[in-house]
Simulated scan of single mutants.
Amino acid sequence: MYKGHYVSVVIAAAGMSNRMGSKINKQFISINNKPILAHTIEKFERCRYVDEMIVVAKEDEINYCRKEIVKRFKFNKVSKIVRGGKERQDSVYNGILALDEKTDIVLSHDGARPFVKIKNIVDGIEGAIEYGACVIGTPVKDTIKVVGDSDNITNTPKRDFIWAAQTPQCFKKEIIMEGYRKAINDNFMGTDDSSLVERLGIEVKMIMGSYENIKITTPEDLIIAESILKNKGTIFRRKEFVFQSR
């Protein structure tokens, strides 16, 4: 518990992994003899200010996740594994509905972001307490172009104002709940949790994250993950576990 606040994390791990081209969910691909999802959960397990985690998984992977991730690696803070929805937004909402009633600070995080720094988790918790809503992110390095229907460039926004949003995205519980309720009522599908809160007219603070906090989505991202682990002095090993529904 952080200064009297009960902090819960929703780990979104119910994606389809279409861009990975793998036979299994990307979260279960192993790097350095540990599934990506286990690397991710471990960061929040090690953060002393996190009180509980809700993992959201595909329905037919819940038992596998419980046995091969939570029990195998002895993650004590994972209180529930719940069924995901059709879209990520649906999945995170299922996770929010399963939170402990004591929760007042909610973090949402991608299961495929295993390199989040504990410092950024703490910064996010503090940001949610201070501002009500915040997002971890980094300034973009490339020039961004806005392209129209004919693939012609229509605008070049000033790079100083463009950031790449990451996770965790962090909120006071009542704020993110209100964002989700309005999105459901309006049949609105956002690109991330922050966009639901922004629609309420609530300011969301951007907090500096890390360029290492990548989301592993494609085979190329695994190569980047290999480089990150090597830079940390870790031997990289990749293995695809054969998934069997249990």
Rank of each mutant, 00 (worst) to 15 (best):
M1I: 11
H5V: 06
Y6C: 02
S8V: 09
G15E: 14
G21S: 05
G21K: 01
K23V: 13
I24Y: 00
N25F: 01
F28C: 06
A38E: 01
E45W: 06
C47L: 05
E52Y: 01
E52F: 02
V55L: 11
E59T: 12
Y64T: 03
K67M: 12
F75A: 02
S79F: 03
K80I: 10
K80C: 08
R83G: 10
R83F: 04
D90W: 00
V92P: 15
Y93T: 07
A98L: 10
D100I: 02
T103S: 15
D104R: 02
S108W: 01
D110S: 15
I118W: 05
N120E: 14
G124Q: 08
I125R: 02
G127Y: 08
I129Y: 00
C134N: 09
V146N: 08
I153D: 10
P157Q: 05
P157D: 07
D160A: 12
A164I: 12
Q166S: 08
P168L: 10
G179R: 02
Y180T: 03
Y180K: 01
R181N: 13
N185G: 02
D186Q: 13
D192M: 12
V197L: 04
S210I: 07
E212I: 02
N213L: 09
I214M: 05
I216C: 06
P219K: 00
I223P: 03
A225P: 00
K230A: 06
T234D: 06
T234W: 07
F241S: 11
